[in-house]
Design a protein around this nucleic acid. Structure first.
Length: 490
RNA sequence: GGUUCCUUGGCCGAGCGGUUAGGCACUGGUCUGCAAAACCAGGUACGGCGGUUCGAGUCCGCCAGGAACCUCCA
């Protein structure tokens, strides 16, 4: 199984067999959030995608070191020459220390990712805590002659790089095109050429986030933190680099250029990019202002939401699409996901009600094989889920008595459902908190249903229906069986 | 303008040359006092036009429409 995982590599634009540099170990670096705003649905996608990846790799017995950064410096707005740091800008706006802003949104990010059942990475380095490492990378690049100083700032020399290395191998861009297609250069530009990018930026007097360096008091450039921190925690070269497709260019391209000069090799061997979540076919994003925060999804407090959605509905919704496809948000799609997930969750709870027989009409081995094959095929979670729904049908049929299963197969079925649904897809199917874990409530409900049963025996349908309807209004779903009834909270 | 990619049934979404993806919704049946749930059954879609092939949503070309990136963005 381990030697059959195929991953789509953006570098080659092909699915490739995954082979780690060091057997049994995987080094994974994923671009995390810039903490200057509340986490929205778009942030959930890479978090869940790479959570699925680490869960699966871990299941395959790899020892995974998962590094996901927190960007709390850098990421200039507008043109580099007049850019303003996003965190600093927000801080000024809210009259806070920049670190207060970063801390606040970092906490929020952690909280909501936790609700989505996203496991913490092994290391979560902050850019602000790695300025020294970033300065070292700059020095290394300057020493090798691929960067130049200009007015206290340091820029990466893309033209020179392109003479000796393949600039654009990830995004397919050509330097000449970049030069000719860039808008008219700012007259005061400190850059020699349009595609050059800042490694170090001299701070304007009003700029509050600043560190000393041999060039100026300033701050590190956009793309540097990932080069510096991946090197520190994963080495000169590691296995997988992940992030959103919108980071492909220029961020990851620049990262490759920096690290290649610094270490003499491309930093990661497999580059994975998750696609965007869209709203009406358009990317959900901070700048477009069409994003819905996770808090809003969970409370329903947004004009575009018809209702609140549970975190697991959101997770299921995202996993129902392949990570490399765009996923269009709509209430209808989310409501469909909610119902589908509920059916899956219900079936999971019902496995315990199945009676084993001495013969199986179901083939568990094929089911298992199908599930693994789906995951091994570039993490095809929608196909995996399709197979899981086949199992749901099987479970329901077993309860309905139209199929049979042996004790051995039943245990295997139970194990596999838990493995794929809970452990690997990370879907929390527990319905405890939702089902009233109050013993007294159970007793009262049982009493009520017993009374109703007596009414039914007397053919007092009016009163029996009244009880059922009103319980329904309160939020209890009543399912009548042939002899007794069961209930659950909706 | 450049680079990359997408267009599948009522909706969401798989599919990588040849047999039903799956979910939601819908229709009929079974069960039920009636419902609900569940089970059984049902609808045959692939933007347009050419081409390759015994055979094409699936490969190639052209056209139409859309998206992402080329400024920060997951």
């Amino acid at each position: 199984m381990k030697d059959q995982l195929y991953i789509y590599n953006t570098l080659s634009r092909k699915k490739e067999l995954f082979k780690p540099l060091i057997p049994e170990r995987v080094g994974l670096y994923v671009c995390g959030p810039t903490v200057y705003g509340d986490p929205h649905l778009g942030h959930a996608r890479p978090a869940i995608t790479f959570d699925l990846l680490t869960r699966f790799l871990t299941h395959l017995d790899y020892k995974v070191r998962y590094v996901r950064n927190i960007t709390d410096v850098g990421h200039l707005e507008n043109d580099a020459d007049e850019g303003e740091d996003k965190i600093a800008k927000k801080a000024k706006l809210e009259e806070l220390e920049p670190m207060e802003v970063a801390q606040y949104y970092t906490n929020r990010y952690h909280h909501y990712m936790g609700m989505l059942n996203v496991k913490d990475p092994s290391i979560e380095p902050h850019a602000s805590g790695h300025v020294i490492e970033q300065l070292e990378v700059i020095k290394s690049i300057v020493d090798k002659g691929y960067a130049y100083e200009s007015n206290g700032s340091v820029y990466f020399d893309v033209k020179k790089y392109d003479e000796n290395f393949p600039y654009g191998i990830l995004s397919g861009r050509k330097v000449e095109d970049l030069i000719s297609n860039t808008r008219i250069l700012d007259g005061q530009s400190e850059k020699r050429s349009a595609p050059d990018f800042a490694l170090w930026k001299k701070a304007a007097p009003e700029h509050i986030m600043r560190w000393p360096s041999q060039w100026s008091e300033g701050f590190p450039g956009w793309h540097l933190e990932c080069s510096a921190m991946s090197k520190k925690y994963l080495g000169d070269q590691f296995d997988i680099h992940g992030g959103g497709m919108d980071l492909l260019f220029p961020h990851h391209e620049c990262e490759i250029a920096q690290s290649t000069v610094d270490n003499g090799k491309i930093p990661a061997r497999y580059w994975m990019h998750n696609n965007m979540i869209t709203v009406n076919g358009q990317k959900m994003g901070k700048s477009l202002g069409n994003f819905i925060t996770l808090e809003e999804f969970f409370t329903g407090n947004n004009k575009n939401l018809e209702q609140a959605y549970e975190p697991m509905t959101i997770r299921f919704f995202i996993l129902q699409a392949h990570y490399r496809s765009t996923l269009d948000f709509s209430n209808a799609a989310l409501q469909a996901a909610e119902k589908g997930f509920d059916r899956l969750r219900q079936a999971m709870a019902n496995i315990s009600k199945i009676n084993a027989l001495d013969k199986s009409s179901v083939d568990i081995a094929i089911f298992e094989q199908n599930c693994y094959a789906a995951l091994a095929d570039d993490l095809n979670s929608p196909v995996l889920i399709a197979h899981l729904f086949d199992a749901v049908k099987t479970i329901n049929s077993l309860i309905a008595g139209t199929q049979s299963i042996t004790q051995t197969d039943l245990m295997q079925l139970n194990r596999l459902m838990n493995l794929f649904v809970t452990d690997i897809l990370g879907l929390d199917v527990s319905i405890d908190q939702n089902n009233g874990n109050d013993d007294k409530l159970h007793e009262v409900m049982d009493l009520l249903l017993q009374v109703r049963n007596d009414l039914k025996d007397k053919k007092d349908w009016a009163t029996a229906d009244k009880i059922r309807n009103q319980l329904n209004d309160i939020g209890f779903e009543i399912k009548d069986g042939t002899t007794s009834a069961t209930w659950q909270l909706k």
